[in-house]
Amino acid sequence: MFSFFNLFRIIALLEGVSYLLLLFIATPIKYLANDPQYVKLLGMPHGILFIAYIAFAFMFKKGFSWSTKQFIIILLASIIPFGTFYIDRKYLKVETK
């Protein structure tokens, strides 16, 4: 069933995957093989997913009554590798029960 909350979970997953690909595959290829095409290829989708993740977090903050501390953790997770996977397990999966 479609819901904006499920869309948020999918965006969180895709944002996390795109960040890992950008950090651990595209960036080393750029500097070690002098080939920036992968960074250019992954950069824009990751940026769009990052902005969507932040927007959805703001959208759901009040609806799920996240405290300020929880909300800051949810926002900071988007800039920490594997952070969005933790958020999905800790905060987003719990909300669906």
Rank of each mutant, 00 (worst) to 15 (best):
A12L: 10
L22P: 12
P36Q: 01
R9S: 07
P45L: 08
P81V: 03
P81E: 00
I80K: 04
S18D: 04
H46G: 10
F85S: 03
T96C: 10
F71Q: 05
L76F: 09
S18Q: 02
P36S: 05
L22N: 05
P81R: 04
K69D: 09
P45I: 08
L76N: 03
I29F: 08
N34V: 04
I80W: 04
M44Y: 13
A77R: 00
L21P: 08
D35L: 12
D88F: 01
G63K: 14
A52M: 13
Y53W: 06
A77Y: 02
T68C: 12
S65K: 15
F50C: 07
I29V: 15
F8Y: 02
A57M: 03
E95A: 02
Q70G: 13
F58E: 09
S67T: 15
A12I: 13
Y91T: 03
V39T: 01
Y19T: 10
I29C: 05
F2K: 15
K61C: 05
D88W: 03
A33V: 12
A52S: 14
L20D: 07
S78G: 04
S18C: 03
F56S: 06
Q70L: 10
G16Q: 07
I54D: 04
K62R: 14
I74H: 01
I10S: 13
E15R: 07
F24I: 14
S78T: 03
F82Q: 10
L20G: 09
Q37D: 12
G16W: 01
A52C: 11
I87T: 05
M59T: 02
G83Q: 11
A12Y: 10
W66V: 08
T68G: 10
G63C: 09
P36G: 04
L21F: 13
L41Q: 02
K93V: 08
I54T: 09
T84E: 10
K69I: 13
F2T: 15
N34T: 06
I48Q: 02
F85Y: 02
Y31E: 00
L75F: 01
I51L: 06
L42I: 07
S78V: 00
I29L: 13
T96S: 07
G83E: 05
K40S: 12
Q70N: 14
L75Y: 09
G16M: 06
F5H: 10
L32F: 08
M44T: 12
Q70Y: 10
L75N: 01
A33Q: 14
A26N: 06
Y91P: 07
T27Y: 11
K69Y: 13
K40P: 09
L13A: 12
I10T: 15
L7W: 13
G63V: 06
I87A: 07
E95S: 06
I11T: 04
A77F: 00
E15M: 08
I73M: 14
H46D: 02
K40R: 08
A52L: 13
V94R: 14
P36F: 02
F82C: 03
R9M: 11
Y91K: 03
L7G: 14
E15P: 01
F5I: 11
H46S: 08
T84N: 11
S65I: 15
Y86H: 00
K93T: 10
L7N: 15
K61N: 13
K69Q: 14
